[in-house]
Design a protein around this nucleic acid. Sequence first.
DNA 1: ATACCGATTGCCT
DNA 2: GGCAATCGGTATA
Length: 199
Amino acid sequence: MSKIVSIDAPQAAPLLLGWTLVYASPSGKISGRIVEVEAYTEDDPAAHSYRGKTERNKSLFEQGGTVYIYFTYGMHYCLNIAVGPKGSGQGVLIRAVEPVEGIDIMQRNRNKKDNLTSGPAKLMQAFGIPKSLNGTSIFDGPLRLMPGKAPGQVIATERIGIKKGQKALWRFYDAESPHLSRKHSAKRTPLNYRHKNRA
DNA sequence: ATACCGATTGCCT
DNA sequence: GGCAATCGGTATA
């Protein structure tokens, strides 16, 4: 177990950037470097856990490191990693990864050559992750998380696609990655800017 | 029971 | 930039 999944989502999320998502798929090994994430907490109106535990979101309330997969818009699946203590209802949405291994499989799954994993539903389709992995552990299941090198610069922005809770700057991404779900917006806040700007 | 809508994507103008 | 696709979850009656 890594300590990263035991801390709160807004702190854990940016720390997960640079980690590698690895899936031992039936077609072969697939992996990608996490470049974009979002944090959600239980007292956050944008979170699925906001109205309490239900059959759909119960994985979010499991211990940190539990996989939460949800179905949305009648056609898409997205991946979260539950974080924090069991029962706290927090998660980190994986919004984009950089394809690393199994790119040929991803291209087949997506029926495209590019933009394979530049979005939360895209990466699920590219990896071919089944909803049955909902509730499994990210440390000992077929879908795993491996530590990696942190980005040189992390940017924080408002989260995407929500209508409540926009104030929180809980979307984090690797400033140098070309594999993001959106292009850089004018409104962005460098994280740890005091370190970076120190002369 | 029925209506509304979403932590998205891709195609159209 | 706008909008349809498509359906389970959630709200409303």
